[in-house]
Design a protein around this nucleic acid. Structure first.
Lengths: 149, 149
DNA sequence: TTCATTCTTGAGCAGATTAGTCGAGATTTG
DNA sequence: CAAATCTCGACTAATCTGCTCAAGAATGAA
């Protein structure tokens, strides 16, 4: 049930850019703050650019900046577009559904669907701004109700 | 965020065994009902045996049967022991925690922790018996509350 | 203009993981 | 004893992950 380092690094980069509102930061600046190699970040930022989350400026004093407001950057969407479906199994995927041969009598599908729904619910309700402002911390307090039998 | 086919197949096998309460089923019987190759199931069942979920009988008329009652088989535990930590990132893992270099100022850890907690909550509250008796279906009705901001 | 800076593009690659296959042996039943 | 069946360990092909690298294109400053 892992998130890849690419996803983690992309979010780190977006957070750093979000902390320097609008400013253009060079890849190596971002690399320093995220602890990711410059060479690898190049790739990731390019991808984030193609997805429309950041924009870039070439040449001296160039670099990257956030293209969208932090409130507009949905974490679930970032992860899905970078790493593929949130669902643990494709039979329960909303964006990449594929039937399996069992299907009809499958007793696991409700479970995978539930897992997908909870993951998607958490990630899709969270924006970059939520992370920047630490809004998630309240959850440590125990406001976690997942389901009733 | 995938579950591997090994995990899926192991649960399928446990479900089939659970549906034939106590009966000894041969690997090929189970293979027929789960749509998994005999050779691959061999490996998986052997692992489930070492983990104490099933027991086996060799020789003619031999096979596998459930060693624990379906109520005693915790799905989260099965997946964790078969595939490793439920957490999407090791910094948020309860069973395999590893610090990352950011740690202190990391704005992602609360997110990964929340994701881990919701996944763990769903999977660890579910038993094989729940799956066999379809208790998860009520969740389709919308009893899904993940968190309050 | 020229040069240093910085992004851009595409290729390449080593190691790990996944999803199996396979052969030979050990055990049990009939 | 023979057939059925689990057991064990090795092996493999394909894919994915997590990067590195080289060469080029654009921009700004001197």
């Amino acid at each position: 049930m892992k998130v890849s380092s690419k996803g983690e690094y992309a979010l780190r980069a977006l957070l750093v850019l979000g902390q320097h509102d609008g400013q253009v930061l060079s890849i190596s600046d971002i690399a320093d703050k995220t602890l990711v190699t410059v060479r690898y970040l190049e790739q990731i930022l390019l991808q984030l650019k193609k997805l429309g989350y950041v924009s870039s400026k070439r040449g001296a004093q160039g670099g990257y900046r956030l293209k969208l407001a932090p409130q507009e950057i949905n974490i679930g969407e970032v992860i899905r577009r970078l790493e593929g479906p949130l669902s643990p199994m494709s039979c329960a995927s909303v964006t990449a559904y594929e039937p399996c041969q069992l299907e009809a009598g499958c007793m696991l599908k409700p479970l995978w669907t539930l897992v997908r729904d909870t993951i998607a619910h958490v990630l899709e309700q969270t924006t970059l701004d939520d992370l920047l402002s630490g809004k998630l911390n309240v959850l440590d307090g125990g406001n976690l109700i997942v389901y009733k039998k």
